[in-house]
Write a protein that binds this DNA or RNA. Structure first.
Lengths: 157, 157
DNA sequence: GCATATCGTGAAGTGACTTCACTATGTAGT
DNA sequence: ACTACATAGTGAAGTCACTTCACGATATGC
C-alpha cells in the first residue's frame, strides 16, 4: 500500500511551479526596483504615479484606496513627488477638505517613459513565443491570481 | 501601408502577460507578508530562516551573499531571530572572526511549518491542472526568469 | 444647529535596508 | 617574525515605506 508520505519526498510539478513563481517574484521585484532607482525614485512613488496616469486626478483618499495603503502614507509619498515636480496638489472644486492630485506635464512625461519601458520588457520577454504557449501561460496566471485573491480574502475572515 | 504606430494602440498578448505578472507579484507578495506576520515575523527574517533550512549552517557573510543583502543587514535580522530563539550563533571552528549561524530546534520546527504551508498553497493553486498546462506554465516561467536575470546583468554593465 | 463622519497631516515609532568607520582576526610577502 | 592587506562582524547614523494615534478643518444628516 502507498504511504501517506510518498508524495512529499518528490518535489512535484505543483510545488516546482510555485517555487518558480517565488523566484520570479524576487527577480522581477528587484528589476523594477532597480529600474525605478535609475530613474530617481522608488517603487512606492512610481506606483502612485502609475495610478494617477491610469485613472486621472483624484483625492488622496482615493489614491490611498487605489494603492491599498493608509492615507497618511499617501501624504508622504506625494510630498516627495511634489518636491520632484511630478505631481501637483490643487484644491478640490466642491470639497474644501480634500486635495485633488494630478500629474504635472513632467509627471506625464515620466509616466509615459515608464509605459514605454514596460512595453519594451514585455516584447523582450514574450514577443517570440508561440501564441498558444503565451495564451496558456496568461490563462494560468489569471487562474493563479484569482485563487490567491481567494485565499487572501478567506484568510481575512 | 501600415503605420509605425499601429501596434501600440492595442494591448497585445505580451504586454497583457507582463501586466498579469506584475499583478501576481503584488498579490503573492502581499499573501506571503500576511502569512509571515500571522506567524510572528517578517519576510526578510523568514528568508533568512529559509536559507538556513535549505543550505544548513553558515557564516553571516555567506548568509548575506545567499540573500543578496549587505552583511550589516544580516546582523540585524539575526539579532531579531536570535531574540525569538529561532537561530543560534556559535563560534566558527577554524575562523575566529566568523560566527556560524544555525537553526535551533524551534527554528527547524518553524521552518518545517513554512514548507508545509508552501506545499499546501502549491496544491491549492495547481494540483487540479492538466499536467501539460502546468508544464507549459512552468517552462514559460523558467524562460521569463532567465531573461529577466539577463536584463538585470546587462543593465549592471 | 449639533453630533458625527471624513480629509489631510503632525508626531512618534517600526522594519528593512544602506554606508562608513572600527576592532578583531586571518593570510601573505619579504 | 613582522609588516601589509584583506576579511568577519558590528556600532553609529541615516533613508524609505509604512503604521497608529491625535487633531484641526470641513462636510453632512437629522
Amino acid at each position: 500500500m502507498k504511504s501517506l508520505h510518498d508524495m512529499p519526498e518528490r518535489p512535484g510539478p505543483a510545488r516546482a511551479s510555485l517555487d518558480r513563481l517565488f523566484e520570479l517574484t524576487e527577480v522581477l521585484g528587484a528589476l523594477m526596483q532597480r529600474g525605478m532607482a535609475d530613474r530617481g525614485l522608488t517603487l512606492a512613488r512610481a506606483g502612485v504615479l502609475w495610478a494617477l496616469f491610469h485613472d486621472g486626478p483624484m483625492t488622496q483618499r482615493a489614491l490611498a484606496a487605489a494603492r491599498g495603503v493608509t492615507p497618511r502614507n499617501v501624504t508622504g509619498l506625494l510630498d516627495a513627488l511634489q518636491e520632484e515636480g511630478l505631481i501637483a496638489r490643487e484644491a478640490h472644486p466642491t470639497d474644501r477638505r480634500a486635495t485633488l492630485v494630478s500629474l504635472t506635464p513632467k509627471g506625464r512625461e515620466f509616466t509615459a517613459g515608464l509605459r514605454g519601458g514596460r512595453d519594451e520588457l514585455a516584447a523582450l520577454l514574450f514577443a517570440d513565443l508561440p501564441p498558444q504557449q503565451l495564451d496558456t501561460f496568461a490563462a494560468t496566471l489569471v487562474l493563479a491570481i484569482e485563487r490567491l485573491k481567494d485565499v487572501d480574502s478567506t484568510a481575512h475572515a
